[in-house]
Amino acid sequence: MELNLGTFFRDSWNIAKFDLWTAIRTKRAVAAIVMYSLGALITAIVLVKIEASVGNELAQLKTVDKSVAAASGATDTQLETTLSTFVGGDIETARQILGMPLVILGFFWMSLTFLPFLILLVSHDIVNVEVRNRSARYVLLRTSRGALLTGKMISHGLLFLGVTIFSNAALFFYAWYYSPGFQPLPSLLLLLRIWILIIPFAFCWMAFTAMISAFVDNGLLALIVAGIGMAFLGILSLNDSFTFFTPNHYKLWLWKSGVLWPALGSGVFILFGLIFTAVAWARINWRDM
């Protein structure tokens, strides 16, 4: 099959624009945006309050007795050691996590935990809804099946990108305003790093959802199958023999300090995303539309 890349990307982009403007008018997309933003904001409010409260108490204690300060240092080391067991025994990573403003730490954790489910809720019918009502036929008269899939994925990707930017900004300004020790520039850079790490992570799960949507025509069934699939991968990641074959295993790498491991983790998420996309693409190319 001949593939004109210029036409392919032009068509994908046109589909993405059209689909994005259509999607943001749907109640489901608005609900998703509100849910995620609200979740981020509530996390921010709670964590800013915890941080402020703990910070004040610690400061008071430190001024009362130097031995307490020493004890708090000891506590920090213990905490680092304990935390490092969750990040593969990497003290540096544990130290980095502890050094993060609590609100940003919370946001990162929240994104890595809940973003796949949000993607599942919003994108489970990314392909099948167009096949079911045959509206895809108007598009397929004019462009390739690959461009349709790519366009739809760009559209949903942009939607999630917009949601994360919006909630990031809300969180950042809230924390800046209400968190006494909040340092805007280092926090902004940290947030940017997290945001960059979330993109491949989100791509992987969106591709997974798109793959299920390409196989299962019924919207609700696709939601259930994709949910079960995600849970299955989660369970599989707990098994020492199979953990490397699941994206979940590499989530830990995103938490690590430095550049290498997070970059490798992102690369693995992109690889998984590409595999899922390729399967979805193959399915869409060979199925009846």
Binding site: I15, F18, R134, S135, R137, Y138, V139, L141, R142, T143
Partner: peptide, 30 residues
């Protein structure tokens, strides 16, 4: 595809978009 067009049976249009928007979109794909 750039040389052909069709009226498929039973295909639905985007329910949330206007006729004009949908047609402009399709023409751009052409």
């Amino acid at each position: 595809r750039h040389l052909m067009s069709a009226l498929p049976q039973d295909a639905k249009f985007h329910p949330e978009r206007t006729l004009k928007d949908s047609l402009i979109f399709m023409a751009q794909l052409q």
